[in-house]
Amino acid sequence: MGRISFFLKEAFGSLRRNYFMTIAALVTVFLSIVVLGGVLVFVFTTDALLKEVEEKVEITVYLKTDPDPTAEEVAIMQDQITSWPEVKSSSYITKEQALQRLKEDYADSPEIFESLTSNPLPASFEIALVDPQTVDIVAARFEGDSIVDEVRYGKEIADKLFAFTDQARNFMLIFIVLLGIVAILLISNTIRLSIFARKREVEIMKLVGATNWFIRWPFLIEGITVGFLGALVATAVVLGLNHYLVGTVSDNLAFLAMPLDAVPYVLVTVILLAVGVVIGAAGSAIGLRRFLKV
């Protein structure tokens, strides 16, 4: 107990005393965490956007028209589709509904439909999936079915989209890891500088017979404090900015359907604070290491 309060007193005393170094370290942590947080927010937002796009991948199953399938056959297929766990929702579009849609699409030129004597459009199922990545598997199940004419799911578009989203996620992950390393190096360097300025102090502590841990604790507490405070301010800035930007974007670019809750605030806060504390502590430990030898 006496020891802990001694360490705390030492740590906060020297944070105050070496305020210039404290500020330098704080700014370094702050900037690193702002960049890291910015990337995190970007990752979450694009991820949400991509998910939204992915969700638009759906399967359309066109049924044969000559002859049209019986109501019974349609009902059997409907049951089958809804029984698959991959399927989120499905709807049956009758021939009439299909024609109606087409007419709506070409409402400007109704003359196209004047020559129609019968309805040439096929009935179809439109299927939305739980996981858009399963589109291949689900589509394949219709192959060879006697009442199915054609299965369309924009295979190429879907494949390209998935390839792109996978790659985008990987890139971001690599970027985040690299950024974390850079932040640790930067901070341990700053802290090393501040410790270098206090080399004499450490030397005296060792001469008086302080153990390495006795010397280390106040420095660790300092590092953790700086990391936490820097990360706290950075988190507030990043999330505040995100909140503001999302609001502006969704006001002005309504068509983007910006997912407002894309960024999990609590999770991001916890991650950023944890990263701040870890790099603060790691920076102190790494910075102190060479001075503790002998």
């Binding site: 004499r200 102090e201 060792k206 390495n212």
Partner: peptide, 23 residues
């Protein structure tokens, strides 16, 4: 090496430059 601090506690050291903690 972890015992060195304990050795030093049994040796008092005085230096030309005093080596006091200035703060």
């Amino acid at each position: 090496s972890w015992k060195i601090p304990y050795l030093r506690r049994n040796i008092g050291c005085v230096f030309q430059d005093f080596k006091l903690l200035t703060n």
